[in-house]
Simulated scan of single mutants.
Amino acid sequence: MARRTPRPAPAPIRATSMWRVDQVFLARRGMRVEVTCSLVNDQGGLRNLSITAPTDDPTQAVRHAARFIAGKGNVSGARQARVRWTREQATTEQDALIRDRALEDDFLDEFEETLAAVRDQQR
C-alpha cells in the first residue's frame, strides 16, 4: 500500500490582514443601487463586500458604500479603485469596460474622509 506524502497546510487567513479596494461594481436593484466592492490583500487574497444603498442616486450610493467599507477598520486604502457598472447594466460589451471616473473620485474622497475619521477615533 502506497503512503501519501503529507501536503503542507494552507496558510491561514490572518485576521489582521490589511485590505485595499480594487474595484467597485454598481447595479440597479429596483429603486436602489447595489454596490459591490472587491477587496484584495497583500497576500493576494480576494474578498467581496456588497451593500445596497438606500437611494437610486449613484453618487450617493458610492459615498454610502465608501463610508461602510472605510468603517470596517482593516481596509487601508482605495487608491486607483475602478468604479464601473455591472454587465447587466451595460447595453453593449464596450459599456461594461467603461470606468466612471467621476464616481471614482466621489468614492475615493468619501473613503479617505471616513478613514481619517476612524483613525482619529483610534488615537
Rank of each mutant, 00 (worst) to 15 (best):
M1Q: 03
R3W: 07
R4Q: 10
R4D: 04
R4A: 07
T5L: 13
R7H: 07
P8H: 11
P10S: 14
A11S: 14
A15M: 12
R20F: 12
Q23K: 15
L26W: 08
R29Q: 13
M31A: 13
M31T: 12
E34D: 12
V35M: 09
T36R: 13
V40F: 01
N41K: 00
N41I: 02
Q43P: 00
L46Y: 02
L46D: 00
S50Y: 00
S50R: 01
T52H: 02
T55W: 04
H64K: 10
A66D: 00
R67G: 06
I69G: 01
I69D: 05
A70D: 03
K72T: 02
G73A: 06
G73M: 05
S76M: 09
Q80A: 10
W85E: 06
W85K: 11
W85A: 02
T86S: 14
T86P: 00
R87L: 15
A90G: 14
T91G: 04
Q94A: 15
D95N: 15
D95K: 15
I98L: 12
A102H: 15
A102S: 15
L103C: 06
E104K: 10
D105M: 12
D106I: 05
F107H: 06
L108T: 10
L108A: 11
A116F: 13
D120N: 11
Q121F: 12
R123W: 08
